[in-house]
Design a protein around this nucleic acid. Sequence first.
RNA 1: GCGGGUGUAGCUCAGUUGGUUAGAGCGCCAGGUUGUGGUCCUGGAUGUCGUCGGUUCGAAUCCGAUCACUCGCCCCA
Length: 414
Amino acid sequence: MSTLLQPVRGTHDLLPEDTRRHRHVEDTAFAVARRYGYGEVVTPIFEFTEVFARTLGETSDVVTKEMYTFTMGEDSLTLRPEGTAGVARAFISNGLSQSLPLKLFYRGPMFRHERPQKGRQRQFHQVGIEFLGVESPLADVEVVSMGWRMLEALGLKGKIQLEINTLGDLDSRTAYRNALVAYLEPMRLTLSEESRARLDKNPLRILDSKDEEDRRIVAQAPVMTDCLTPAAREFFDQVTAGLTALGIPFTVNPKLVRGLDYYCHTAFEFTTDALGAQGTVLAGGRYDGLIGQMGGPATPGIGWAAGVERLSMLLGEAPPPERPVALVPMGDAMAALALADRLRAAGISVDMGFSGNMKKRMARAAKAGARFAIILGEDEAARGAVTLRDLDSGEQAEVAEERLLGLLTAQKSE
RNA sequence: GCGGGUGUAGCUCAGUUGGUUAGAGCGCCAGGUUGUGGUCCUGGAUGUCGUCGGUUCGAAUCCGAUCACUCGCCCCA
């Protein structure tokens, strides 16, 4: 196939069969979010590069090698690699600190220049939420439990585990970072190459290294929970107690860290083992420092994002679309189109072919999944009637045209 | 960015030690039935064998490059 006719690497077309699952995931997520009082926000899919570079962390992988950045005139712009930075920017731009607390839901495409794999694309879609302005750990409980309820609503409860950890407050993090470096430094040469680099730049990330030797070393390392300030410990205890009170199963994973710099306190991940190397399906955490750091009023926040493609892959089948009624005109096709027009105006989904003999049209009706076929023949037309055929049972009967709409409407509401 | 695997019809795949017009199933189209679908029967169409180059009398088959997909690493949704 010519290069021109191929989609760009890591991008995919979503055909109707795909969008059915895709929309089901998005719509379910939003329906659940609405029950928690969220409104939808739509921010641009590109921002000034600074918006991402400053907030995600200059050393994060996303910023250093995964951004789609381009220049227009003087401006450096970047296709959004994730949603939180843009929402935070919109919060500041629109002066929304007047409306706190604020609950925002978003959905849409994200872009990361990574090597594609199963469950990883260069353009992918996320649904996500941000809850701004509440410092209480109860906000964390609500946000995490909402993620769980959403996965439950998608029927994925049995395929997913929740892991949770705390990154503590600033003091806890500094203390822990020092303790960790002090422990690892003497073993620097036994660490993997990547981890040696991380030791200087972002030692916390060594914790979730997949290198076997690293894992052995890390197994004995000090854990975050040892270094928590009393306040940070109390915060985390309330979060876990809250989840327990709501009956949400989770495991505390002290090795869980997040790749982006803006997280503090609660970090969590919903994972599955059904997607190969890409186990994370929904993840997030608290980011109290983010908005202040971007130049806005100091505002606490917590949120999560979920990968729509990954969730779609876990989904068995999306709910089937509404079954249409098929119109099969034998003679006057325009009269049939007019009838279709009246039925559609009444809210009935009508499929009508424009060519072919009766056999072809009936086959088309069956393929469209139609429940009924309305056959418009000359004989019936003369009597002001149509033939209504039940395509499931094969039974058919002549029906006066004025009774048709009533019958179909009654059927539909069954 | 690094390493492994794979590219043949719309889809899933066969194709022998290199040998004429490259196959199957499903799907699609047509007919059996010009007013009756889902079953059945009959017939039909469809390929730059991913692309470019090389070896050879001859390449889907061997070699090289390239592109894409895929699995893993890194990292993440």
